[in-house]
């Protein structure tokens, strides 16, 4: 129990002291996961919309595939990206291993299926409602997909947030491809893992509380913006 109490106190002290090292770590976490989520949205949302709207061979297989990949273990993704980016790997020449870019790539791979699968669900619901009207107006399926992506933008923010939440909370992938290098690739989750291995459980938990607070505030802001936008546009 003292650990929990200590942790809340430590978390509060960390935030109150506006510790620059902590701020750097939080900022890197946000930057990496935000970039990864952005890529995942740019790639995953059109895929999800086409899976919802399109009719092509292999569609069902792809739907099952993307739903399944939502549970992709981060460590496996990390390993995969590590082997790709390693000097001995096919993309080794770029020297990207142990850089924030590598972390963005790994998280983007991890998150894209989540965004795609959730987008497919949202767009499939919209498609059921809009299908006849859009086809009557002469929209092709890809055009309909684009229209529904724009029209479903408020609901789709949930898919993006789910992806972001997964990205910023995972440790397995960034640990492997980032290497947890102090000041370069050390993010919140890898710091937590490190402090846990040092046996500094109160500090680890305090960092965990800061992470939760950051994620919660982002969700709260997004929720408020979404509510406002929905009231505005219906």
């Amino acid at each position: 129990m003292t650990t929990l109490g200590d942790s809340f106190l430590t978390a509060w002290q960390l935030v109150a002291a506006a510790d620059t090292r902590l701020a750097g770590i939080v900022w890197l976490s946000l930057r990496v996961s935000f970039a990864a989520t952005l890529i995942a949205c740019v790639v995953g949302m059109p895929i999800g919309a086409l899976l919802a709207v399109g009719r092509f061979p292999g569609r069902r297989v792809l739907i099952v595939l993307f739903n399944g990949l939502m549970g992709l273990p981060p460590v496996v993704v990390g390993l995969l990206v590590y082997l790709l980016l390693s000097r001995a790997g096919p993309l080794g020449a770029f020297g990207l291993l142990f850089s924030p870019t590598a972390m963005v790539i790994a998280q983007a791979i991890l998150v894209t299926p989540i965004v795609a699968a959730l987008t497919r669900q949202v767009i499939a619901d919209e498609w059921a409602e809009y299908r006849e009207q859009l086809r009557s107006l002469g929209a092709s399926r890809s055009r309909a997909a684009a229209t529904l992506l724009w029209d479903g933008r408020f609901s789709l923010s949930t898919a993006a947030l789910a992806g972001f939440g997964r990205a910023i909370a995972e440790v397995g992938a960034v640990m492997i491809v980032g290497g947890n290098i102090d000041g370069v690739t050390r993010v919140m989750t890898t710091t937590i893992a490190l402090e846990t291995s040092k046996g500094d459980l109160p500090l680890a938990l305090a960092l965990g509380l800061v992470l939760i607070a950051v994620v919660l505030s982002i969700n709260a802001v997004a929720y408020a913006v979404r509510g406002w936008a929905e009231r505005k546009w219906g």
Binding site: E129, E132, S136, L137, G138, R143, T147, D151, R153, W233
Partner: peptide, 25 residues
């Protein structure tokens, strides 16, 4: 052109909804 029992409106302005059909054409 077809008009349905329940009108389907896109989440945009009235004008943009009317323009949408023209855009597709």
């Amino acid at each position: 052109a077809m008009v349905f029992q329940r009108p389907v409106m896109l989440r945009t302005t009235v004008l943009a909804n009317v323009e949408y059909g023209l855009k597709l054409k």
